[in-house]
Simulated scan of single mutants.
Amino acid sequence: MDSNRAAILDGLKAYEPELIAIRRDIHRHPETGFEEKRTAAIVAERLRSWGIEVVEGIARTGVVGTLKGARPGQRSIGLRADLDALNIKETAGRDYCSTIPGKMHACGHDGHTAMLLGAARYLAGRPDFAGQIHFIFQPAEEGLGGGRLMIEDGLFERFPVDAVYGMHNAPGLPVGTFASRKGPFLAASDIWTVRFRGTGGHGGAGAHLATDTTLALAQFVTAIQTIVSRNVQATEIAVVSVGHLAAGDFDAHNIIPAEAVVRGTSRSYKAEVRNLVQRRVSELAQACAATFGCRAEVGYDQLFPALVTHAEQTDVSLAAARALAGESKVIADAPLVTGSEDFAFMLEARPGGFMLIGNGVEADGGARQLHTPDYDFNDEILTLGSAYWVCLAHEELD
């Protein structure tokens, strides 16, 4: 396998300057969910130029390229990358910094797209496999459920697969390292909004006449910290975090606001824990509102399910990683990740696996984390990620 690994890496190395150019071009022109028209057009044009059959417009801006192997075979697999960026202002300094104000590729989807394109090009030029591969480029992974919408748009009816695979970069994991696990891997992701309503009033002369929404909000923010510590069983995992607070007007310092809003996220791995957290968020909001004579309106949306990998396909993906990187560079029982991924929808629909690829460690031992203004995908792993996809295709279709 060493000679095969070297041949794959050498073949892909020849494309590396092009992959870097594609990645950085996409980085300069970030597009958020369902707006990825330019990115999708780049993907479609490249796939067609390599002789790959292309279908566009799946779930609005999704693209699927289909490549048939040179050898006969009925098995079919899907390899998936995501296209969208985030609403974050990028830290200046790179010569390929975002040119779109307030938007950037802060999660590495530009790199994911480039890696899958690299694999598509390599396999199109060396289709020595049996069956077919669907290269799935998904829109709107960041909170908008593009994976679910692709499925609803007939993804797996139009492009049947026996297995589907995803991959994500992991800051803090050394370059050359791969990690996966069987069963629950990434968390379910929910968002919630609580709107406290009261009378408001004059903060000086009329405080005793007001129902104060800020008190209800303050008590609620403290109270929800008990959900994980006192309601969720100690052997289970959940996270409840506040991400947004709003009340009153900055210039109205002597006005008690009649409305206060708090928003946040919850993470979990099991349906019973997820439902418990949802129930307690609502109960605590109502109780805190009632305590201070206010009303509470609660909205709770279960966005993404937990990402649960399948045992057989995880073994295949781990075998591909070992063939490429060696046993010592592959973590087969990675820790649970409380981040979420809407690839979970695809794993609910079809068997498959999910792999983390190391994005590197900074000199001080830290890493530029996902969803932060100074994050950047590491171009050093483009060839390695493409090679993983190629090895996975051979594991599945040889």
Rank of each mutant, 00 (worst) to 15 (best):
5 R>I: 10
9 L>S: 01
18 E>F: 05
24 R>H: 15
25 D>A: 08
31 E>H: 05
31 E>D: 03
33 G>K: 00
40 A>H: 01
43 V>Y: 02
47 L>P: 04
49 S>E: 14
52 I>T: 06
57 G>S: 05
59 A>C: 05
66 T>F: 09
71 R>T: 12
75 R>L: 14
78 G>A: 14
79 L>V: 10
84 D>A: 01
87 N>G: 01
92 A>P: 05
96 Y>Q: 07
102 G>L: 03
103 K>S: 04
105 H>G: 10
113 T>Q: 01
120 A>C: 02
121 R>P: 01
122 Y>C: 10
122 Y>Q: 12
127 P>W: 09
134 H>N: 15
141 E>M: 03
141 E>C: 04
142 E>A: 10
143 G>I: 02
144 L>R: 04
145 G>I: 04
146 G>D: 13
148 R>W: 01
148 R>Q: 12
163 A>I: 00
165 Y>N: 06
170 A>C: 08
171 P>K: 07
173 L>E: 03
173 L>I: 07
174 P>S: 12
176 G>C: 08
183 G>I: 05
185 F>Y: 15
189 S>G: 15
191 I>Q: 14
198 G>P: 00
198 G>K: 08
206 G>V: 07
214 T>R: 06
217 L>Y: 09
220 F>E: 08
221 V>C: 10
231 N>L: 06
238 A>G: 13
238 A>T: 14
238 A>Q: 13
242 V>Y: 05
245 L>A: 06
249 D>H: 09
249 D>R: 10
255 I>K: 02
255 I>Y: 01
264 G>C: 10
265 T>I: 10
267 R>M: 11
269 Y>Q: 02
270 K>M: 03
272 E>Y: 04
277 V>L: 08
284 L>A: 12
284 L>V: 10
286 Q>M: 09
290 A>P: 06
290 A>W: 00
293 G>C: 07
294 C>S: 09
301 D>S: 04
303 L>Q: 13
308 V>W: 09
309 T>G: 10
310 H>Y: 11
312 E>H: 13
312 E>Y: 11
313 Q>S: 11
315 D>K: 11
318 L>A: 06
322 R>Q: 15
325 A>C: 14
330 V>Y: 12
331 I>H: 04
334 A>R: 03
336 L>A: 11
340 S>E: 13
341 E>N: 09
342 D>S: 01
342 D>G: 04
344 A>Y: 02
345 F>S: 00
348 E>W: 00
350 R>L: 11
351 P>L: 07
353 G>P: 10
355 M>D: 08
355 M>R: 00
363 A>L: 05
366 G>K: 13
371 H>Y: 12
375 Y>L: 02
375 Y>K: 02
379 D>S: 07
379 D>P: 15
382 L>G: 06
385 G>Q: 06
390 V>L: 07
391 C>S: 02
394 H>W: 10
395 E>N: 09
395 E>V: 12
395 E>K: 14
